[in-house]
Simulated scan of single mutants.
Amino acid sequence: MRRLKRDPMERAFQRGYQHGVQGKSRDSCPFNTPSARQNWMNGWREGRADHWAGYTGISGVHRLNEMHAVG
């Protein structure tokens, strides 16, 4: 069965979240289009908040999966 590609906006959010939870700077955003950049920044903010709350490493990955399973 052929797999469909993931939504690029969801992917931008996930990549931003991963950068945020790792404590990386928001200046490392790789996207140029406004909508993808906004989704990346939203993910980065969520990840940064989780980083400050102590969700690092595997717990951050589990948190990301929980957020997308609900939403």
Rank of each mutant, 00 (worst) to 15 (best):
R37S: 14
F13I: 04
S28E: 13
Y17E: 05
R37L: 02
Q22Y: 01
W52N: 11
V21C: 04
G43D: 06
K24C: 08
Q14G: 02
K24L: 13
F13E: 02
I58G: 08
G43H: 01
N32Y: 11
S25D: 15
N32S: 15
Q18L: 13
G47L: 08
R11K: 10
E46R: 00
Y17K: 00
R48L: 12
G57D: 09
H19E: 12
A12G: 10
P30H: 03
G43A: 12
R15P: 00
A36P: 01
L4E: 11
D7K: 06
G54R: 02
G47E: 05
K5G: 01
K5V: 04
M41C: 13
T56A: 12
R45L: 15
W52S: 15
I58H: 05
Y55W: 01
W40G: 11
N42E: 11
M9Y: 09
Y55Q: 04
D50Y: 02
H19V: 07
T33E: 11
D50V: 09
P8I: 14
E46F: 03
V21E: 04
G57W: 00
G47R: 03
N32P: 04
S35K: 13
N32Q: 14
V21G: 02
G20I: 05
D27I: 10
A53P: 02
Y55I: 03
G16M: 06
M41N: 14
R11F: 00
W40I: 12
N32I: 07
W52P: 01
S28I: 13
E10L: 07
C29W: 07
Y55E: 09
R15H: 05
M9A: 14
C29V: 12
T33K: 11
R11L: 02
G47Y: 01
T56S: 15
N39G: 04
G54Q: 05
A53E: 09
H19Y: 09
Y17F: 10
A53K: 00
R26T: 10
P8M: 08
Q22A: 15
F31A: 05
R45F: 13
A53V: 03
D27M: 11
G23D: 08
R45S: 15
Q22L: 07
G54M: 03
R26E: 13
L4M: 06
G57V: 13
E10W: 01
C29P: 06
T56W: 00
